[in-house]
Computed example of a mutant assay.
Amino acid sequence: MSNYLKKYLPLFFLLPFLFSCTTHYISQWQNYDEESTLADDGTVMIKNDTIGVSHAFNNQDGTVLVRIENYSQTPILINLTKSALTINGKTFGYVDGKSTISGWLDTFGSANGGQVGSFGGEIVGKPNTLFVPPLSYVEGSFANIQPEVRNIVGNRFIGNQTYYPLFNYPINTNLVFYEDSKSPMKLNSFINYSLIDSNNNPIITKTVNQNFYLSGFFKVRNMGQKELNQNLLTREDLGSYSITKGQGAGLILFLGGLIGLAAIAADVEE
């Protein structure tokens, strides 16, 4: 390899990164239930003598993590078909009705020119109910809210550029805060549960309602994905999504640079 290639080739490998830019959009959710309780770990939850329900928004896939605790000596059955989450009145079921199909598929031609086939395998569906024994808890991730956040806030985001201690240290961010009455997004969660007897018959059925609103929105550029993910682990009130732009231009320059270097190397060898 010529001295030209040795000198300039590393630079072209960096081009896709130099011309790409990742922007992180971070949403902050606040609970506005008067009867809500702050747990020892900082989680906001609705709590009574029987049940405790809390929500976390920091899942990387955009789903909401729901934790349901049974404080009673009686088993509880959570009916997900009668539970739902709403964003600005639009309902998102905790059960999406989708199933996973696994197995094998055989097809072969028929005399009439068509195709027939056979399938062998199994269809696995998500549970419609959750059983919570006495003095225990259950967790599940449901309802991807990321597309709604991007649609409602992301395209019309206008904020102020400043340094703000979002993760206990100042970061350069474009931010906006919302009051309850002026928030562009209201999120309401409804969890239907029943106390059941030894024969799994409902003794009493109730619904726990928990309410949130979008209280802040932040746009951050000077932070890597790994650093962001680590910071979010300790902030259940924050959700995020990231958008990377410019990778295509960087790749084109990268390929063009390789072609140019190849031409230079050929000239030097001649």
Score class of each variant (00 low, 15 high):
Gly62Ser: 01
Phe92Ile: 09
Gly52Ser: 11
Thr74Phe: 03
Leu65Trp: 09
Val53Lys: 00
Ile145Tyr: 00
Ala84Leu: 12
Lys126Met: 11
Gly154Leu: 00
Asn70Cys: 00
Val64Pro: 06
Ala84Gln: 10
Gly117Asp: 06
Leu135Ala: 13
Gly103Arg: 05
Trp104Gly: 04
Ser72Asn: 11
Lys98Ser: 13
Leu80Asn: 02
Lys82Phe: 08
Ser54Thr: 05
Asn58Ser: 07
Pro134Cys: 06
Ser72Tyr: 09
Asn58Phe: 10
Asn70His: 06
Asn79Trp: 01
Val95Gln: 13
Ile51Lys: 01
Leu135Asp: 14
Tyr137Gln: 15
Ser99Leu: 05
Phe157Arg: 03
Gly114Ala: 08
Gln146Trp: 08
Gly120Glu: 11
Tyr94Phe: 15
Ala56Leu: 10
Leu65Asn: 14
Phe131Arg: 10
Gly113Asp: 03
Leu80Lys: 04
Glu148Gln: 14
Ile123Leu: 11
Trp104Asn: 09
Thr74Gly: 00
Lys47Asp: 08
Pro134His: 08
Asp61Phe: 00
Asn88Pro: 04
Arg150Ile: 05
Pro75Ala: 01
Val149Ile: 15
Glu69Gly: 00
Arg156Asp: 10
Val66Ser: 11
Gly140Gln: 14
Asn155Ala: 09
Ser136Met: 05
Ile76Asn: 07
Ser110Met: 09
Ala56Cys: 10
Gly154Glu: 06
Gly113Asn: 00
Ser118Lys: 09
Ile87Asp: 04
Gly120Cys: 07
Gln60Pro: 13
